[in-house]
Amino acid sequence: MKKALAVLMAAVFCMCSMVGCSQKKQVTIETAEDLNGLKVGVQGGTTGETWVKENCPDTEIASFKSGMDAALDLKNGGVDAVVIDELPASQIVAQNSDLKILDIRFTKEEYAIAIRKGDTELQSAINAAIADMKTSGEYDKLLAAFMPADGEVKIPDEYVSDGSETIKMGTNAAFWPFEYTEGNQIVGFDISMSQYVAQHMGKKLEVVNMDFDALIGAMQAGSIDFIAAGMSVTPERLENVDFSDPYYESEQVIIVRK
């Protein structure tokens, strides 16, 4: 009885001492290396996470299901900074006046469509579709629609295909403006682009939404055919999947509290 009480009190004491150890502190970050020693939020499985792990070994990484969760935790003071791709970052900052993007750029990366290793047939079909999209001007139309100068996104008409065969595209609809939900629809640059690709191949597109860090496994297991999820080409990923020609150039940015 006394022992149980002692254990209980010790537990309560431990917990009390843990409270209040995460106060919202003002951080100054001038270079990306300043992230060392801070708590940094990322989305699980993104290049942002990999980059922080490799370049700032002393950071305490909190790996969330979506960039938005990480940003929410930043607002709440759970982390000191969030590392995320620039376009979703600009959306997050636009919606949260107490957050800002730091003027530091540290990695350039290219988004491409991922396919199963060795699936050269699909790879060349996708590459042909992307090339065609660029020459026909549809690519610029999509860019203008999803990344307009005035910030007013206008979702373009769906590229409809009357093919009988279905091709499955995996994505993680929490990455504005490449894939996100509008009402009960998943929309975004990657979605429209994939519709175009499917149409080009004469197939119907089926969009499968899942956690970002589950995408590659799902494709290897065969439950999706390709991934269009603002996925950057990295050497580690190239060991396990093949990529199409890149279709967008992006950067990682750092968000902090104002």
Partner: peptide, 14 residues
Amino acid sequence: YFVIFAPMGMDRHL
């Protein structure tokens, strides 16, 4: 976490 305790500054593990 997101609604109740994090705004109070409580650690995730707690």
